[in-house]
Simulated assay, not measured.
Amino acid sequence: MRAVTGRTPHERRHDVSTQPLPPDRNQAILEATKQVGALLKKHGHDFALAGSVAVYAHGGTGNFQHDADFCVRPEDADAVALTLGEAGLKVYAPPEDWLLKAKCLGQDIDLIFRLGGEPVTSELLDRSPELPVDSVFMPVLAPTDLLRSLIGAFSEHHCDFGAVLPIARLLREKVDWQEIRRERGGQPMPDAFLHLLERLDVITPPEGPAPQGGHS
């Protein structure tokens, strides 16, 4: 996909890409999230907020990681990119084939259509509750889906337990850990993380034998 630059100079005077950048990085990411979420809602796109800003919407701290993540279905990615481009945001395709990227208020926006190695589905989006992100309500990944996506991203090449541990602590009462064990517990890195959570008394060890399978 080529970069989408959007409208004429006269029309772009009111585009979100030209608005002043908040001085604080976390606040800038939050403002960019609100701008993009409001645009997607206005144009009727199905989506759900993911990543560290989704954790914030579920009651986490406002210490965001690097960007704002939005989940969209693969078949909707081009339409979402067009909407953002027409609003003046630069949208482009990175080397990775599971997302598109955009810039808003100088912040990175990830438009993810494969989450944790699996396509984003209507079912995933439909069970995402609408929550306030500061002053803007938008769909946010349900806690179990959020943890599933984070744990499912663990691999031999990317395995940052330290970033996900506080999220698991925060959301532990809202997560269906049996479901996550069923789907991810047979994979080495997710299984190691679940074992760590048990040793730290974040979650209760399962009853019965450990799962033998899991998605690749």
Rank of each mutant, 00 (worst) to 15 (best):
A68G: 05
R114L: 02
H58T: 07
T61K: 09
A77L: 15
A28D: 01
P74N: 11
L150C: 04
V175D: 00
G44Q: 07
D108E: 10
S216G: 13
A3D: 12
E179V: 01
G185A: 10
G85K: 07
H66T: 07
A163N: 12
H10W: 10
I112L: 14
K101N: 11
E31I: 02
A210I: 02
D160M: 13
E86S: 09
G208D: 14
G62S: 14
G51M: 01
C104I: 03
A38I: 10
L111Q: 04
L197P: 00
L115P: 00
R148D: 06
P132T: 10
Y56A: 10
L82R: 12
R7E: 09
R73W: 03
R73V: 03
P209W: 14
L111C: 04
M1E: 05
A48D: 09
E118I: 13
C159F: 13
T5L: 15
H195M: 04
G37K: 02
D201E: 12
S155G: 15
T121Q: 10
R182M: 11
E86A: 11
I180D: 00
A79R: 14
G214L: 08
F47V: 08
K42D: 14
D201N: 13
H45G: 06
V136M: 06
L165I: 02
R148L: 10
S135R: 13
E11S: 10
L171Q: 01
A93T: 14
E118N: 12
V91S: 03
F64K: 01
G185T: 07
S52K: 03
G213Y: 08
P20K: 08
D69Q: 06
D67M: 12
